[in-house]
Design a protein around this nucleic acid. Sequence first.
DNA 1: TCTTGTGAAGCGTTTCACAGCC
DNA 2: GGCTGTGAAACGCTTCACAAGA
Lengths: 207, 207
Amino acid sequence: MRYHRVPDETIKRLPIYLRGLLLAAEEGRKRISSQQLAEYLRLNPWQIRKDFSFFGGFGKRGVGYDIQQLTRQIKKILRLDVVNRAALVGIGNLGSAVLAYPGFGMYGFEIAAAFDSDPVKVGKEVNGVKIEGVSKLRRLKARNITLGIIAVPRQAAQETADALVKAGVKGILNFAPCHITVPKRVKVITIDFVMDLARLPYYIPAS
Amino acid sequence: MRYHRVPDETIKRLPIYLRGLLLAAEEGRKRISSQQLAEYLRLNPWQIRKDFSFFGGFGKRGVGYDIQQLTRQIKKILRLDVVNRAALVGIGNLGSAVLAYPGFGMYGFEIAAAFDSDPVKVGKEVNGVKIEGVSKLRRLKARNITLGIIAVPRQAAQETADALVKAGVKGILNFAPCHITVPKRVKVITIDFVMDLARLPYYIPAS
DNA sequence: TCTTGTGAAGCGTTTCACAGCC
DNA sequence: GGCTGTGAAACGCTTCACAAGA
């Protein structure tokens, strides 16, 4: 499925809608209106409807949206309807936290492999995943792994990205605080939470 | 210092510029042009100049920007020119990673207190910070703590936020995967990295 | 000559208002 | 009557082109 001119901002919101829908489903609901979904997420109902309209609309006028059906459709658009296997590189504090994070499964993600350069860590098993040496980081495609997660120190981030790309991943989630360069067929999303923390004081009125 | 109609997007980029400047300074540079800073960060030079122009401009025409001076000015705008003390709540996997994260100091942050509800953890010292029971989470203002970081499970996020607000924090960095409601004088920034990972498959062309 | 700073144009997103359908 | 879906208006941000200044 490939749609026509969908704003990037809309794509950013789809996972949030999914989060709201999973929450509503957890509460045993079957149907939801844009108004109600908006309340769950503190967004505008018209924003939600507009976003859905890019894909043709998912609801019934006068009624609302069927939660299960809408969930399935959004998952399909985001390609979360299949299991996405990811390789995690760097099993330090942050990497360990990612490995232990319980939130991935609901969205169809699976940390299928873990790598670290530290020989002491190699061979250990964390959360059911055996840690491999970074030298084993190749032919991930053959292992059905399409995503990479970088949780190594900044200095090692670019070489890790290079290795992941060479091994065949198509998308990278980068936790290292730097830009990484990859061929343009590969999509990178960088998360640097210090960048987010750093704008918090700006919004705080002077004491 | 309060400026006139600065786009939120500009404020989001200022910490990134700061990251580039710190990197350039690390390499021993003294001056930098918008062109060169843009190369460090893979952004557009005119975007950088435009952003700075909202504050009146920081450079010298024909020359560029003085790195040290520019760094100081951006830090001042973002209020990173003083030490910002933060309280971290939830010392699980993610909380521990945050506590151990080395990147805060450069931006003037200090994790000055850590709280957890687990009695087993209370009293232990992690990275030089003693873990306190959540019942001790009050009067943070008196301890000169203005920021809160939430790293507790989703179910406990709202009550944690309430406690932090009551204790006097002015800004919250929320790692829990949900919206939290606070008085509007308090600024919340939520980071849910599953939301970011969740849009990665969308950008990957079908095999 | 080089690089900044900035009005104005261009562009994409948000918001609105209401037609369309249940 | 109620809620969705959507063209059009409003808005804000990005990009451009060039004047201003070192």
